[in-house]
């Protein structure tokens, strides 16, 4: 049992952002959420994290509605890594990773050996051993994301939600980061823009278009030339030439905008 969304909808400013989305996760697998800008990826992740509550529908964790669980209890199960986190506070890597222990600690009690152990393990898993005393503001973008993942791991979650974690990273760090995430023994949901990265590292994919589910399945089921044309309005050439025979997408150009009635959202 894990996170489960049933027919969730959410609107903002009079616009329907998500419209009846279902999502069932496979425990221990990595699910990629794809879709153009404004398709509702971030909103879906925030609903799954319990940071927003759905206007209709239900998000459950092990069968219990998220809204009925205590925030602290949810944070011990579900960890979130944002697109880009920053702070003005002068923190070290160990301080930031230590924040992951917040949901595990009771007020007026000192930290326990468990906390220190969890921080050490998280640093190790994220490949940051030896960096504990470095200052946050001296880290590169890739290192910061790694630290945020280590912080999430220090929460000792079973579900990990990442919202476009590879934005602003160079290609080596993108691959590093997603390889790290995919290798974790957690039930992971990651919102992504890059279709090739999604093909390489995700077990399952969910494609959103204007707040609705357009497709779901394994990468080779979902990432087809037709779907890319339909959702992104881009011509592409898809071949099974990626690692382990996964689909590889070569982009050929944009397609003309759809008929005016559909009113494609301008991106940029």
């Amino acid at each position: 049992m894990t996170l489960h969304a049933e027919g969730v909808s959410r609107s903002a400013g009079g616009h329907l952002i998500l419209d009846g989305v279902d999502l069932a996760l496979r425990p221990g697998h990595t699910t990629g959420v794809l879709g153009p800008n404004g398709s509702g990826k971030s909103t879906l992740l925030r609903l799954l994290a319990g940071l927003l509550s759905p206007a209709c529908g239900l998000v459950t964790l092990d069968g219990y509605p998220l809204g009925e669980l205590r925030r602290r209890a949810v944070a011990r199960r579900v960890a979130v890594v944002e697109q880009q986190a920053d702070t003005q506070v002068e923190l070290t890597v160990a301080d930031v990773v230590g924040l992951g222990r917040v949901p595990h600690r009771r007020p007026w009690t000192p930290g326990s050996p468990d906390d220190e152990q969890a921080v050490r393990t998280a640093l190790e898993q994220a490949g940051l051993t030896g960096h504990a005393e470095r200052a946050w503001h001296t880290l590169s973008g890739g290192e910061r994301q790694r630290v945020q993942i280590a912080r999430a791991l220090a929460q000792q979650p079973r579900e990990l939600l990442l919202d476009e974690p590879t934005n602003h990273l160079d290609i080596q760090h993108q691959l590093d980061l997603l390889a790290l995430v995919a290798a974790l023994p957690l039930t992971t949901v990651v919102a992504l823009h890059d279709l090739n990265l999604a093909a390489m590292y995700c077990d399952d994919l969910l494609v959103l278009g204007r707040g609705r589910v357009v497709a779901r399945g394994t990468p080779d089921e979902v990432l087809t030339e037709e779907l890319i044309a339909q959702v992104y309005r881009v011509r592409a050439d898809v071949t099974p030439s990626g690692p382990e025979g996964r689909p590889h997408i070569r982009f050929l150009g944009t397609l003309p905008p759809p008929r005016p009635a559909e009113g494609e959202r301008r991106v940029g």
Binding site: A49, L51, R70, R71, R72, A73, V74, A75, R76, V78, A79, V80, E82, A85, D86, T87, V89, L91, D95, V96, G98, L99, G100, R101, V102, P103, R105, P107, W108, Q155
Partner: peptide, 24 residues
């Protein structure tokens, strides 16, 4: 305030980050 000291630590990355760490 001392009872809330770790909650205050959690605000370092903003209120959404604090909320995702279980802070009300």
């Amino acid at each position: 305030c001392l009872g809330y000291c770790r909650t205050l630590d959690a605000f370092a990355f903003g209120q959404d980050a604090a909320a995702s760490l279980g802070v009300s």
